[in-house]
């Protein structure tokens, strides 16, 4: 999951992309965390995340999984991974989790300035920051940045550059719409932080720029 801080894209696009994690700590607050995580899950679900997963089930919001199945799967040590597409939704979610005061670690991955603003508004005092110093080494071997803004939305690198190109091709052919294309791209991401709302916007911008000979 270390990779969520390396999400790429324009500042404007990252303004609508905030991953949020609920994370019990082994040996510290793991035992007895199940009911607490369940209460947080219920709250977050009602804040309309763009995507969401619980580590004990690993099926995202668009997989056809029922909310009851998700809640029933939660046990001690379960972690929640979700993503919000507006600053306001994130603020509401954080505010609610603060009010619940379950004592489980909460992590936000997003624009630091925006998170700083939200923390000040709701009276949170962030503890630790993980800064991305970028990508190094053979960067010439990377796919282009416009493809990476999709692939880096999965914390584990499960979105293949070829799948992004395939979805773009199918949208151009009229076989898929932008939203369905985004859901296809979200499916391989088993950490549930692929943001299909942001993906839809990016596809809309990108599809006219690609021509068939590129794949």
């Amino acid at each position: 999951m270390t990779h969520s801080l390396h999400r790429e894209g324009t500042l404007d696009s990252l303004e609508r992309d905030y991953a949020l994690f609920i994370y019990p700590a082994r040996g510290f607050n793991y035992k007895g965390s199940g009911p607490k995580v369940r209460r947080i899950m219920e709250l977050l679900y009602l804040k309309a995340p763009s995507n969401m997963i619980v580590s004990t089930l690993r099926r995202n919001l668009y997989s056809g999984v029922r909310p009851e199945e998700v809640l029933e799967s939660i046990q001690d040590g379960a972690r929640i991974y979700c993503v919000f597409n507006t600053r306001e939704k994130l603020k509401e979610a954080l505010s609610g989790v603060k009010k619940l005061d379950e004592g489980i670690s909460v992590v936000v991955s997003g624009l630091s300035d925006r998170v700083r603003g939200i923390a000040a508004e709701i009276g949170l005092n962030p503890h630790t920051i993980n800064l991305s110093l970028g990508i190094h080494g053979r960067t010439d071997r990377l796919p282009p940045p416009d493809i990476r803004q999709f692939t880096t939305m999965c914390g584990h690198g499960m979105i293949a550059p070829a799948l992004v190109r395939d979805v773009i091709r199918r949208i151009k052919k009229g076989r898929l719409n932008l939203w369905d294309g985004s859901i296809i791209l979200a499916a391989p991401c088993t950490c549930g932080i692929y943001n299909p709302n942001r993906s839809q916007e990016m596809l809309q911008e990108l599809v006219p720029l690609y021509t068939f000979h590129r794949w």
Binding site: Y23, N29, I104, S105, V107, P126, H127, N130, L131
Partner: peptide
């Protein structure tokens, strides 16, 4: 450093 980061909100 990139403008986006991973931030522990201090609630644990």
């Amino acid at each position: 450093w990139r403008p986006n980061a991973k931030i522990n909100m201090g609630l644990g």
